[in-house]
């Protein structure tokens, strides 16, 4: 069993209108995969459907060979930054600790070793100096890193990240990509919804091209071709992107 993720015939519909149709792909263990497609292609929806956060109309998802259940604790999820209220009364360390809640179990408070793990994760993402800061007072990139730290302490085998690179500074982008490579080194699998076409070949081993339907999925150097991209983006692939692709 060398597949981290197996998705079979997943279909999602809102108000009878299909947003994703018959998506089927597999992700081998220990790779970094990008989910790429235009706005409204259903990238976030796909991740949410896989994790049971959105209802699937049909299809099966297996993670590490088992039907996915949130309780399995094999999956870490980094949602888009905009999904929470950053004015919430809490600090960076506290948010990171939330990643331990699944391990701590009902009714109990985080232990010293949980706090130590959270501090270690904040160190890894370069946020140690800000651990007691209220989350509103962090920059967008710093908030993203706190979310990553929270996912790290989950100690999962497969990670799903929804647009972690959006709206972050260059330093954070470097920090995130270093972290993704670290995760890969230690045998974890990471699936990332990604927007920036230019960095796909550099960052990711595997690519899923998506536009409501699955256009292609496989090793980046096979899948990430001009022809396939045009099929994914239709006429919307901008001239700028095209010239850059040719130059590559």
């Amino acid at each position: 069993m060398n597949q981290a993720v197996e998705v079979k015939d997943v279909t999602v519909a809102y108000d009878q209108k299909p947003v994703l149709e018959n998506i089927s792909f597999t992700v081998p263990k220990g790779i970094l995969m990008a989910v790429v497609g235009p706005n409204g292609a259903g990238k976030s929806t796909l991740i949410k459907a896989m994790l049971d956060l959105t209802q699937k109309s049909a299809g099966d998802v297996k993670i590490l060979g088992e039907a996915y259940k949130p309780k399995n604790r094999t999956v870490g999820y980094v949602p888009q930054r905009g999904t929470v209220d950053w004015d919430f009364p809490t600090n960076a360390l506290d948010v990171t600790l939330m990643g331990r809640y699944g391990h701590i179990g009902w009714f109990r408070r985080p232990s010293k070793s949980d706090v130590a793990l959270a501090e270690e994760a904040l160190e890894k993402v370069g946020m140690s100096a800000y651990k007691h800061r209220q989350i509103r007072q962090l920059s967008g990139g710093q908030q993203q890193r706190v979310f990553l730290a929270r996912a790290l302490v989950q100690d999962a085998d497969v990670y799903f990240m929804d647009e972690p690179f959006v709206g972050v500074d260059a330093a954070t982008e470097r920090a995130i990509i270093a972290l993704l490579r670290d995760l890969k080194e230690s045998g974890k699998t990471v699936v990332v919804v990604h927007h920036d076409l230019q960095t796909v070949p550099e960052y990711f081993d595997w690519t899923l091209l998506l536009n409501k339907q699955q256009i292609a999925c496989g090793p980046t150097d096979e899948v990430f071709t001009m022809e396939q991209l045009q099929q994914t983006y239709g006429g919307h692939l901008s001239f700028l992107n095209q010239t850059e692709m040719v130059g590559r």
Partner: peptide
């Protein structure tokens, strides 16, 4: 606290 701050994450860890 978790379902107030981030309900999706709460669901994701099996609450």
């Amino acid at each position: 606290k978790l379902i107030t701050f981030d309900p999706e994450f709460a669901k994701g860890i099996g609450l």
